[in-house]
Design a protein around this nucleic acid. Sequence first.
DNA 1: TCAACATTTCAAGAGATATTGAAATGAGCG
DNA 2: CGCTCATTTCAATATCTCTTGAAATGTTGA
Lengths: 116, 116
Amino acid sequence: MTADTLIPVQETRAAEASARLGALAHETRLTVFRAVMRAGPDGLPAGALAEAAQVSASNLSSHLNVLLGAGLVTVRRDGRQRIYAPDLDAVRALLGFLINECCQGAPEVCGGLVRC
Amino acid sequence: MTADTLIPVQETRAAEASARLGALAHETRLTVFRAVMRAGPDGLPAGALAEAAQVSASNLSSHLNVLLGAGLVTVRRDGRQRIYAPDLDAVRALLGFLINECCQGAPEVCGGLVRC
DNA sequence: TCAACATTTCAAGAGATATTGAAATGAGCG
DNA sequence: CGCTCATTTCAATATCTCTTGAAATGTTGA
């Protein structure tokens, strides 16, 4: 039995959400994340992301680690490149958290944002 | 003409979004924000929020300043209390940004999150 | 006017995060 | 094998961000 077995679900959800929000709370990372989302499951190699975000390879790499740590993206190897793709379940979970947990008291905020 | 007149809209949007994400990217602030959203336009006094988040008044106050700075909440005075309420336009804008800008490449992520 | 209350402001120390450049890893190719 | 390319790791420095407690602000009610 690990430590987090004892933590109520709601708390881990909030902790996870705030970690993910933190990962997106940086202009470079938000740019990178958007590029990765746009690319979809095929993903993009680190080089393309460094280009898109206009940062050095090593700087990009550390930002990618934050996104990975938050579970928002995944990596796979392809030859000498590393391909980053979105973790769509995580993204869904984050949006779901924001919409359900945060807009509960104000449903009008959430309505009309997604075409049905 | 101020400096930001020259910055493209898209860039300010992203900057604003990442500032707002940063404001939510802290467990205490996320808790406070959720309480404020639940309270709706009536809002809640700082004291109630300190209680809800289980932090000292001064600590709470500095977190509230971050949320205010990001434009996610508003304050008004009521006697000796200060009442914090959500800025629903800002919340809408943030959710809209995430859904439109970030899920563009993967609309299936966004579908099905809001009951229609 | 004074005391009590709700809250904010301030300063300081601790801790986390960002950025850089140089060095390491590991794959592919001649 | 030895090069080169794509990327990560590392260490150092610089820069934010948190938290705390004490002091200040402004409001109300006796």
